[in-house]
Design a protein around this nucleic acid. Structure first.
Lengths: 149, 149
DNA sequence: AATGAAAATGAAAATCGTTTTCATTAAGGA
DNA sequence: TCCTTAATGAAAACGATTTTCATTTTCATT
């Protein structure tokens, strides 16, 4: 089993939450997924493993996993309800517009820019978002231009 | 009257849409606003000028203005349903977390970064989002920490 | 100015995603 | 194994957005 699944289950337990079949099913989907998944997609996929899972429980589990910092919400031009496994450290997202595959990257040097904008605007900047959108190598080959269901 | 209001009305007309009191009211609010407004906020403000305006018409007008590129949706950590007047050229957003005031800025040099990420990932990058979040000078003074209603 | 066709409107109803309620089930410490 | 309490799923409620539809308004044509 993906060690990440163990890790997440342990984190749940450590925080006083119980381990249940529903949560296991949701975690196995999210911990493995390379692409963003919205609540309905998680529900459909997780139900293949545990068919009495309810959509309500998916919502509740997503909230807990996000609270624990194990997953994060992903904002995209066509919707902001999808999630992906989080990584540690400040990283940025690269997202495929066809299949919603996500890769993280780091290495922006925005300090100078932020300082300049702060001076020019009088704002105090607290955080920033940097996201790249495009097509992953597989979707470039396929010529796919699929959009989220 | 704000010349921008004229401009937007002209753009509507040029595209075969009719000029109506409802649209005028919505446009006057959005063309003037320095901060992001969600549909309900637009509705409340525009009704002060034209009180028989319906919320449905606000939604329909927002869709048209966005289609014409006159306004753009703004994605924020706490919601993605707000709009702000668009500007021409590729600009980035600086947003106040307290009052939702928006300023545009430009001048990121991401070309090198994008190229590096493309090489490392095999992605073909098409667009990017760069947004800064913080507090505008007024809200810093007030010590306000208001959130969207 | 008057006319008429078509677009636009607002109210009500429908829809969709998400949250709450609640009776039942299941986890896990005793 | 028992018992407390968290967690669950089904149904109902909810809020935001969209659709439907009869009526009103715009505006090109007279």
């Amino acid at each position: 089993m993906d060690p990440r699944v163990y890790e997440w289950l342990a984190r749940l337990q450590k925080n006083g939450y119980r381990l249940t079949e529903s949560r296991r099913a949701v975690i196995e989907i999210l911990a493995h997924s390379e692409r963003t998944l919205n609540p309905t997609e998680v529900y459909d996929l997780a139900r293949q493993r545990y068919d009495s899972l309810g959509l309500v429980t998916v919502y509740r589990t997503l909230a807990k996993l996000e609270e624990l910092g194990l997953i994060q919400q992903v904002h995209q031009p066509d919707g902001c309800e999808a999630y992906i496994a989080a990584v540690s450290g400040h990283q940025h997202l690269l997202i495929c517009k066809a299949c919603n595959k996500v890769e993280y990257f780091q290495g922006d040097k925005l300090d100078g820019l932020v300082e300049r904008v702060e001076n020019e605007s009088g704002f105090l900047v607290q955080e920033h978002w940097l996201q790249l959108f495009g097509w992953c190598s597989k979707c470039q080959q396929n010529g796919t231009q699929v959009s989220r269901s």
